[in-house]
Design a protein around this nucleic acid. Sequence first.
DNA 1: ATAAATGCAAAGGTTTTGCAATATG
DNA 2: CATATTGCAAAACCTTTGCATTTAT
Lengths: 147, 147
Amino acid sequence: MHKRKIGFAEFAGICRNHGLKSTQQRFEIYSELIGSTEHPDAESVYTAIRKRMPSLSFDTVYRAMRTFEEKGAISRVSPGLERTRYDANMEPHHHFICGKCGTIKDFYSEEFNRISTPMEIDELGKAEYVHVEVRGLCNKCRKSKLT
Amino acid sequence: MHKRKIGFAEFAGICRNHGLKSTQQRFEIYSELIGSTEHPDAESVYTAIRKRMPSLSFDTVYRAMRTFEEKGAISRVSPGLERTRYDANMEPHHHFICGKCGTIKDFYSEEFNRISTPMEIDELGKAEYVHVEVRGLCNKCRKSKLT
DNA sequence: ATAAATGCAAAGGTTTTGCAATATG
DNA sequence: CATATTGCAAAACCTTTGCATTTAT
């Protein structure tokens, strides 16, 4: 299931379920996202909606999408990091990233090393590599949370 | 193996292997990266080196790290995307991302769904989720490459 | 000698913020 | 009605770029 069209009533229900107020702007933004298979960024969404709702402002799109994400109504495509970070360790290993403090810890896992491109990719293109990482809360942040 | 200290001679060898000129700045930058387990960003590297090499400029750090990465001497931690993109499809699925045009295609894979947190994480913190994605070249870009 | 790398400063691009006005539950 | 959301504009932030100078091969 992908690319769906929803009415305001259904959207209002989704908002209620996530503790959000349902505004016309948010409806348009959410509609644009669920009606697309493009995984759009803020600008695409903004440009598309502007045609039918010229009063919409850019930061409303940004804010709405962040809010939807925080409340779990939509998800961010590839998590990424706040800034570019590098690793000079070139042997096969993986990363555990703390979502609270941003600490990145290396770990080694045979299991993860064995993950290979699924055949479902064949019809989409040529795979170059599979990226796997674990996100969570590091021990330090876990402790400080108890404080 | 992690957190190593290297001398200029060894560094020069690494550069030669990757077709790079070995400068004092690059040596400091590379040393900082390989001598750290922090997966630092440009600013950390810059700040650390500035103490001993006050003439170093910020953009040299950026440029050097990008160059190291392009030549395969170091790697970027979590690939991420150029801008934040969202997905309203909340059922379990994964993404194939084309490194050329940026197109993101959904795919469904039982195999990927089954990937679970490796036990190696236990000593690092509490895992929230595993993120997996496939990077490569989409069919469209593959074709246009032949032209 | 030639081509590449550096430093400087300025620009580029995306994302965020403060505030007054407005709309929602 | 109280509170959250919007629009506007400006700022913040990370990263990149052009150019003259210096450096490595």
